[in-house]
């Protein structure tokens, strides 16, 4: 297996959009991320962010049906962790509104705080989505120690 240029390591997984799989996804990504010089606190932050992105896919993407959630994580040659969480679900009409705290498209109790945690805990969060075309969330984070060291 050849890795693309600029990618030092890569893992990918896919699973049905079931709540039971959220813990597996966040734990697997955190273990993969520990190859970089993240502190335990940073690994906890990565777990929360991945948990939010995957939970969003499980809750929102397919309504009450079960679809596929794909999670891919890479470590770049520059020593950054990049995680993609993708679904082929209904997509988000207005990403800007969806990212605002307190907003949620279903009357459950999650308060729409998911993006707040992702943005607080990661260096970068991108959301690519269109109605009917699924959603892809990109999460980026580099170890703070590495940044300080330059």
């Amino acid at each position: 297996m050849t890795l693309p240029d600029g990618i030092a390591n890569r893992v990918a997984m896919e699973f049905p959009s079931k709540a039971e799989n959220v813990a597996f996804a966040r734990t697997a990504v955190a273990v993969f991320a520990s190859q970089l010089d993240f502190t335990l606190e940073e690994l906890d932050e990565i777990k929360v962010a991945v948990s939010e992105a995957v939970s969003n896919a499980v809750i929102h993407a397919y309504g009450d049906a079960v679809g596929t959630v794909r999670v891919e994580a890479v470590i770049t040659a520059e020593g950054e962790l990049v995680v993609w969480v993708r679904d082929d679900g209904r997509g988000i009409e207005d990403v800007g509104t969806a990212r605002q705290a307190q907003w949620t498209s279903r009357p459950e109790e999650r308060m729409g705080l998911g993006f707040t945690f992702m943005e607080e805990y990661m260096d970068g969060v991108e959301v690519d989505s269109a109605p009917g075309a699924g959603t892809r969330v990109t999460l980026r984070k580099a170890p703070a120690r590495a940044r300080v060291a330059g």
């Binding site: 906890d44 777990k47 929360v48 948990s51 939010e52 939970s55 459950e108 109790e109 999650r110 308060m111 729409g112 705080l113 998911g114 707040t116 945690f117």
Partner: peptide, 12 residues
């Protein structure tokens, strides 16, 4: 571990 789903459940 807790995330926003857990926070929401506590808030409820």
């Amino acid at each position: 571990f807790i995330d926003s789903s857990g926070v929401g459940a506590i808030l409820g």
